[in-house]
Design a protein around this nucleic acid. Structure first.
Lengths: 137, 137
DNA sequence: ATAATTGCAAATTTTTTGCAGGTTC
DNA sequence: GAACCTGCAAAAAATTTGCAATTAT
C-alpha cells in the first residue's frame, strides 16, 4: 500500500493529514491499537487529538477501509482491509502476524456454514500462543 | 455442566452464591457479556454488584475456568472453557453459536504453526455473517 | 479463627459527544 | 462557499480499586 490519498478518496473521505497519518500508522504496524496510533502520530504532529483518531477509526471501520481485530485479554488492534487470513498472536509480546488462509480451509468454512444456512461474510482466525522469538528466550 | 460447586473447588475458589450464579449464567447462555451476566443475576439476587462480576470474571479467566471471546464491533462475551471450536457470529442479532473444529482444521493449524516455530496454545475462530434466522427475515 | 470475598463508593480509564473554528474540494 | 473535519473540553460509559463488613472453610 502506498497511495493513501487515493484510498481515502475511493471511500469518499476528505484527504486530511490526520487521516493519512492514521492509515500510514496502521499500514506500517500491520496491527495497531488506537492508543498506539495516537502515540505514534503525536510525535510528529503534536496537535492531533485522540478523539480524532477514535472518530476516524470508527468511520473507516464503517466504510470497510479498516478492520477491527479483537484480541482476548488485550485491546483491539486495527488493520487495513485485506483478504481473510490467520493471525498468530503472541501472548507474551503481543505481536500479531498474518498468515495466508489456504483455499482448502476457505472451502471447509464454506461447507460448514452452508450446512447451517449461515451467510458467511468474513472470518477472523486467531491462533494464540508464543512467537518464535519469545519462545526462544 | 451441572456441578458448579465442584468446578469452583477444583480451581481453588470459594463457593459463593455470586460465583455459582455467574457460572450458571455463562453456561446457560453459552456466550454472554459481563453486563448481561449482571443483569441476569440482579433479578433474583438484587444485592450483587457489577464490580463483583468484573472481579470474578477476571479471576476465572486467569484460572482458565472461563474464556473471553472478543468480537469485532461488540463487547467481549465469555464462555466456559471447552475444546477449541468455531464461532458463528451473527452481525445482526449478535448471537454466537459453537461448531466443532474438525481434525482436518486442527491439523492444518498445527502444520502452519510448526512451519513458523510458533508455540500454539489455543485458537479462536470467528465466522461473521448472518444466522439462518436473521437471514430469512 | 483465618483468609477470602463481597458491596459500596470513589477513582481511573476508555470512548463518545457537542460545538466553534479551520480545512478540503 | 458548502460541507466536512479537527481539536478541545466536557460528558458518558466501562473498568478497577480500596476498604469495612460479611462469609466460607
Amino acid at each position: 500500500m502506498k497511495d493513501y490519498e487515493s484510498l481515502l478518496k475511493a471511500h469518499g473521505l476528505k484527504n486530511t493529514f490526520q487521516r493519512v497519518s492514521i492509515i500510514k500508522a496502521i499500514d506500517k504496524a500491520g496491527h495497531i491499537s488506537i492508543d498506539d496510533i495516537y502515540k505514534e502520530i503525536v510525535v510528529y504532529h503534536p496537535s492531533i487529538s485522540l478523539a480524532t483518531v477514535y472518530k476516524n477509526i470508527l468511520t473507516m471501520k464503517e466504510l470497510g477501509l479498516v478492520v477491527e481485530v479483537p484480541i482476548a485479554n488485550a485491546k483491539s488492534k486495527y488493520e487495513l482491509i485485506k483478504n481473510d487470513h490467520i493471525h498468530f498472536i503472541c501472548q507474551k509480546c503481543g505481536s500479531v502476524e498474518d498468515k495466508p488462509i489456504t483455499a482448502k480451509i476457505q472451502h471447509f468454512f464454506e461447507e460448514l456454514v452452508a450446512h447451517d444456512a449461515f451467510k458467511l461474510l468474513s472470518t477472523q482466525n486467531n491462533l494464540y500462543g508464543m512467537c518464535h522469538h519469545c519462545h526462544a528466550s
